[in-house]
Design a protein around this nucleic acid. Structure first.
Lengths: 254, 254
DNA sequence: CGCGAGGTTGAAACAGTTCAACACTTGTGG
DNA sequence: CCACAAGTGTTGAACTGTTTCAACCTCGCG
């Protein structure tokens, strides 16, 4: 689906005699960046692979947390729902992202694949054991949790104080500058649909659509197609967003 | 100001020959719950006390993080601002709360006292050293960070998907059930003013005021005075809030 | 070719914001 | 002790913008 890098583990034979982690192209972004050599083998020993189809659910809110995951390729959405069906997407998970940072015993959010995805799966118990054995692994997860918390704070500003166009501008900049791509990616591919964007930004799909039109009319973006956005004027878009997101570009993964 | 428990360290002589931490009444809520005996002495050795007047600023967004804090008594607000002055309060810190969970080198938020407050202050460097020495201290901070992340996710739902009355209802329930009081406190004392509430919930002060009136008219709350709310019907208020916040009551501090 | 899903656009309804006035409390100074 | 000003909160009325509801468009696919 996505014109991603040519090397996901899924495309290789599942488990060879030797390390597949070592060749993983998102390793430097993921938890596993904390490990090397033997340590990596130990991680690999408790790892299994998991694939998800588009919109397939991985975990559901309230479910016991028995396994944790590291996303290799694809994209996930994390959300909570209200009894009446209203939904708030708290974030999207990109390759290198870790699933289970916020939760202790129970998952506090539902997780679904936005597009077909591949994950590394671990028993929560075994992962905890490994964290005791390799403190740098725990340290890494701690750093990733802190980063997630900063992201959540930025999100609160977006949700609480930005106007719809500003929200969308921030969102596009966030996608353009997300760490995975290393450099600023342009045009930006929107793997999620308008409903997802709306539920992430606290808007309706109609308002999202109208905000796209506004940015287009103002000449800040160009919609190559409904899911591909070219950022025509990066600076102006950042000015509209108001939010200073520069720290999200570099700090990405400490 | 607040009719709090009778024992804040501030009321005692500043540093006696022996442990003041051991007598601290919020210790079981704070970082220090992870430590005991000698360990507690080690923490106390690097600790100093800090007092803040109402609305006094402790740290400013962008400032280098040289010290970290544990709140003993009072209340703090944490927020970020936009260039044009719009403000989003990401949360309030209550006694036992820790300041500096999300940040690495630089503070990502401004912190001010809502009411006169007393804090334990530590050099960030020394605290890190202590965390290396006592892994359970790091573990404790990690748990508190995870809790903060879950809180942030709940907040995103409140900001993005709840109507004003629902937002206010959630906010009141949050205050009523916050861990410090141990039991559900009623009536609830609002130490912060309407502007703070508005900037926390993503509303204007007028809408906050009107929402108070609506809850009052519906018979769910009673305003003893502008800053004291009696929850008349807890269940109905929870129903209005929509949000299930029960997990915030018990999980408080793992 | 026609159906369905996803996205855009238009018009009306509604709700939160804005602007303004008023009430209440507190502190200052005559 | 009272008058007055300042700060905070509430209420009203008009306005603006998002939501709602509906229609329409486009694309992919059976």
């Amino acid at each position: 689906m996505s014109s991603a890098l040519p090397c996901h583990p899924a495309e290789k034979p599942k488990r060879e005699t030797c390390s597949i982690c070592a060749d993983c192209c998102v390793r430097h972004l993921a938890v596993c960046a904390a490990l090397d050599g033997d340590e990596l083998d130990a991680l690999e020993a408790i790892m299994s692979s998991k694939q998800l189809g588009a919109n397939e659910m991985l975990v559901e809110e309230g479910q016991e947390k028995t396994r944790v995951y590291s996303l290799t390729s694809g994209m996930l959405r994390l959300y909570t729902s209200l009894p009446d069906g209203r939904r708030q997407i708290s974030g999207f998970l990109f390759p290198g992202g870790y699933l289970g940072l916020a939760d202790d015993e129970v998952h506090s959010q539902t997780v679904e694949a936005v597009v077909p995805s591949v994950l590394c799966s671990f028993s929560d118990r075994e992962m905890n054991a490994l964290m005791e054995r390799y403190p740098q692994l725990k340290e890494r997860l701690y750093e990733m949790t802190k980063f997630a918390l900063r992201q959540a704070h930025d999100n609160q500003m977006i949700l609480g104080r930005l106007a719809p166009v500003e929200k969308l501008a921030s969102f596009l900049l966030l996608l353009a500058n997300r760490p995975q791509a290393e450099t600023t990616s342009n045009p930006v591919h929107l793997a999620m649909n308008r409903t997802d964007i709306a539920d992430y930004l606290g808007l309706t799909i109609e308002t999202v659509s109208r905000s796209f039109t506004k940015l287009k009319t103002q000449g800040l973006i160009r919609l190559i197609d409904a899911n591909t956005v070219e950022i025509t004027s990066y600076r102006s878009l950042a000015a509209v967003a108001g939010l200073d997101i520069t720290h999200l570009m570099s700090t990405a993964n400490a």
